[in-house]
Design a binder for these strands. Structure first.
Lengths: 281, 281
DNA sequence: TCGCGCCGGCGCG
DNA sequence: TCGCGCCGGCGCG
């Protein structure tokens, strides 16, 4: 069937979803309505895919949900910045094998991070490992320095999805200490085990930031923010995400600091815009 | 079919696996051979179950694998202690809603942990949350104080599974500072995201321990160990699990300390015995 | 080929 | 009822 261009079959005839094409084709190139529930929408898209090919595994849909959710948030962030209603921009990041987030900093700070990693490994065989955050928040200043065209995204096309997911490349080696405002951990859904990946990531990013600050005698820094966004969040999630960044509780000198600064439920493009205007201003 | 006592159907006719019974019945009450690969074994058990009822979902099997793996490690630990070849005992822990690990400590230390949690929450609305570790390692001394019968487990029965998974109850309020030697994070398999739950847990348990030590002026403490065990471990897993406990890198005074002290691949009862004799001695 | 980071569907108390 | 903590099956570079 020609319509099924977003489901392919590999050499073993296992169906494989092309995540970008699937989203664009099923939505006919249109962004979801502003108030459409993404929980509902993704279930409908799942049903469409399963109706096309019942052999599609749940794991494939799980995988797609993660990207779809990031794409829609990435578009909301871009459009908000283009409209002039956001001071800063949230950028989708690829995985850590594809991109080292430290290289967003200019050479000076990037080298300090390299140096920190090396020294820690060399002295004690201990590492500073977390997954790449889903989004990085960069300052509007650096965005205007590095990007020249600011057109809103009004259509869901694979070109547009490719644009927002590779935008980060424009910012390599271009951020000063204050140009990386923070990160966002994004999950389509939470579980009591998986949600702890967020405080881990927040803790590590903040510990590295504190180290940068110390090494450079930066007095009274702005601080690094780490936010979490999911389609649905309950009270236990909120409580767990208030977990302390452990580097801040061993001495009495510092106030204990949360690993995740704020947690937001975002289940539609409208709420994405609302939440991002709070985070990005 | 009468044989299917370990697959039940709820009111909506959805099949449900009784995890304990399933393991015992499928293995006919026998422990796996010492050199049987658990990866292979679990796949065979999955196939048996799916052959009985094709509607069993992968999620149900995932859930069962976690328990089966813990049961077998719990039995190996018990038998090792009973045989006299282990100084300490690793106990299966339930989830955090069912049991607060802090209550394993005697009243004095338990109250300090309560106090720490309260003060942190009251002062800064920040929490100290992680999932319960899968296993706690308690000293042989306290085991001999609290348990009177030491029979090896030679059969897989639901009674025996119930025994090893509720043994922890014997140790409530009975551990001094040095009687909780450490914890073990156990996962049947790892993924690059899920494996980070282990350093998070290790980091938090160690930060709490350091706090106990500080509050009690304990000089030169033994330290708290956090181990990780999985059926299969690759180089990236090992590297990620060497991630630093972040509380140990903010000051120059302490040596950076790993959140996870050692990582072991355990894919058979024999290797379980080998690894546990290293951890528990 | 494999490492990354994705997430839903559990059994149980 | 729901919170806990379980984990495999992805699409992609």
């Amino acid at each position: 069937m020609a319509l099924l261009s977003y489901i392919r079959r590999n050499r073993k005839l296992v169906p494989q979803i092309n995540k970008d094409e699937a989203l664009c084709e099923m939505l006919n190139g249109n962004l979801p309505e502003g108030d459409t529930s993404l929980i509902t929408l993704f279930k409908e898209l799942d049903n469409t895919i399963k109706a096309e090919d019942a052999n599609v595994k749940d794991g494939a849909l799980n995988n797609a949900h993660g990207d779809w959710y990031e794409y829609l948030l990435g578009i909301a962030s871009w459009n908000l910045f283009v409209s002039g209603d956001a001071a800063n921009l949230a950028l989708i990041l690829p995985n850590i094998r594809q991109f080292d987030v430290a290289t967003l900093y200019n050479e000076e700070f990037c080298n300090i991070i390299y140096d920190l990693r090396e020294k820690i490994v060399a002295s004690t065989d201990v590492e500073l490992i977390t997954s790449n955050p889903d989004f990085v928040i960069v300052s509007g200043d650096v965005v205007r320095q590095r990007v020249s065209e600011f057109e809103p995204i009004t259509e869901l096309t694979t070109e547009n999805l490719n644009f927002i997911s590779s935008l980060y490349q424009s910012f390599v080696n271009s951020c000063g200490f204050d140009d990386i405002i923070g990160y966002i951990g994004v999950k389509a859904s939470l579980r009591p085990d998986r949600r702890l990946q967020l405080p881990h990531e927040g803790s590590l990013m903040k510990a590295i930031y504190v180290h940068l600050q110390t090494r450079n005698w930066i007095i009274d820094p702005k601080g690094l923010k780490y936010y979490a966004i999911s389609r649905s969040i309950n009270d236990s999630d909120r409580k767990a995400l208030r977990t302390v960044a452990t580097h801040s509780i061993t001495t009495v000198h510092n106030e204990p600091q949360a690993a995740v600064d704020e947690v937001y439920a975002v289940d539609s493009l409208n709420s994405a815009t609302d939440v991002l205007s709070r985070i990005l201003n």
